[in-house]
């Protein structure tokens, strides 16, 4: 199972880099959905010996929510708002990838300062989680469309979730349900606000949202 875990983790990173590489918005949403599915499968490969219902429920919830429901919401927002598919990044393709690579290195650097927790499954989980969090932040920071920012937030959440998988067995299910619910509600409210912004400003570019300052 070790190889499967590593493969899934690499897929997660690749999805991040794909989004950073300023592809059209639709493709990015699909990449994040794909990332969500990969994450959903991770608990099964990380804890192969433990086949509890708890794990399966989490996996199923993850795949469903992150792989289908939330991407669906985002696609609907694109359709409703008739948004052009380009992402309008604030930095170029090369810079994006370059920064992404730096962040992967940073993730490994910070993870290197922390002792590896036992039963982690793979030594790559922590660095991948941290760099995914940071790349999510990078997407938020470097994208002009607020829909892309929501997407970045989703990537960030995926990173955190990757990390949470270390603890999958240790955490009570109720908390995880709460976490998932909150994330879902968060994205839902973000979607609603994006819709309002589109109606109010006639665009969803963050450049318009700079009236409040000092």
């Amino acid at each position: 199972m070790e190889h499967v875990t590593q493969l899934l983790l690499i897929l997660v990173i690749l999805a991040n880099l794909f989004v950073l590489g300023s592809h059209p918005l639709g493709a990015c949403i699909r990449a994040v959905a794909f990332q969500g599915i990969a994450l959903g499968l991770l608990p099964l490969s990380l804890h192969p010996e433990e086949r509890s219902i708890h794990l399966f429920v989490i996996a199923l919830g993850m795949v469903g929510l992150k792989g289908f429901v939330i991407p669906g919401l985002l696609f609907r927002a694109i359709r409703d708002a008739a948004i052009r598919k380009e992402q309008e990044p604030l930095i170029g393709f090369n810079t994006g990838l370059f920064l992404g690579a730096i962040l992967v290195g940073l993730g490994f650097g910070i993870a290197g300062k922390l002792p590896l927790p036992p039963h982690t499954g793979s030594s790559m989980v922590v660095p991948v989680a941290l760099s995914t969090v940071m790349m999510g932040l990078l997407v938020i920071v470097t994208r002009a469309k607020i829909l892309s920012q929501a997407l970045g937030y989703l990537i960030l959440e995926n990173g955190i979730y990757t990390f949470g998988l270390i603890l999958a067995a240790g955490l009570p299910g109720l908390i995880e349900m709460g976490v998932l619910l909150d994330i879902f509600a968060g994205i839902f409210i973000m979607g609603t606000v994006i819709e309002h912004i589109h109606r109010e400003f006639g665009s969803i570019s963050a450049h318009k949202l700079v009236n409040l300052r000092e």
């Binding site: 910070i110 300062k113 922390l114 940071m134 932040l137 963050a206 300052r213």
Partner: peptide
């Protein structure tokens, strides 16, 4: 200094991000 509050939410997040990474490198 007041220019730091320029209204661009992306840069606000960048402050947060940089601050966090700095703390991590300083204190960890």
């Amino acid at each position: 200094f007041r220019r730091l509050q320029h209204g661009k939410v992306q840069l606000y997040l960048l402050y947060m991000f940089v601050f966090m990474v700095a703390l991590l490198f300083w204190k960890l």
